[in-house]
């Protein structure tokens, strides 16, 4: 994990994300493979995508931009979006 990411994140962010998305969607965690496509492989629709975004923002205390939401198509990209948001947040805090 890069140094500037806060260390209060779960050790295995990917696994944590899978659990979170399983909770929101009601899908089994096994089905939520890191590279399975949300829309085509898992059957997540635009409504669920918003619910997932709400859950991610609450759990990891980050902000996902509007235009990013449809671009997050699998667990791995969701994890990267969270890391990027945290990196940005940490950089901003450093500048203060």
């Amino acid at each position: 994990m890069p140094e500037n990411i806060p260390n209060n994140l779960p050790d295995d962010l990917e696994q944590d994300m899978r659990q979170l998305i399983a909770d929101v969607t009601g899908k089994s965690i096994d089905e939520l493979r890191p590279e399975a496509n949300f829309w085509n492989d898992i059957g997540i629709d635009s409504i669920k995508a918003i619910e997932i975004t709400v859950a991610i923002e609450r759990r990891y205390k980050v902000r996902i931009r509007d235009e990013q939401i449809p671009k997050i198509t699998n667990i791995r990209e969701a994890v990267e979006a969270v890391r990027e948001a945290l990196r940005k947040k940490a950089d901003e805090q450093k500048q203060v």
């Binding site: 409504i47 619910e51 709400v54 509007d66 939401i69």
Partner: peptide, 9 residues
């Protein structure tokens, strides 16, 4: 919450 999407829930 956001400009272009409502917060479901």
């Amino acid at each position: 919450w956001k400009i272009t999407v409502p917060q479901i829930g």
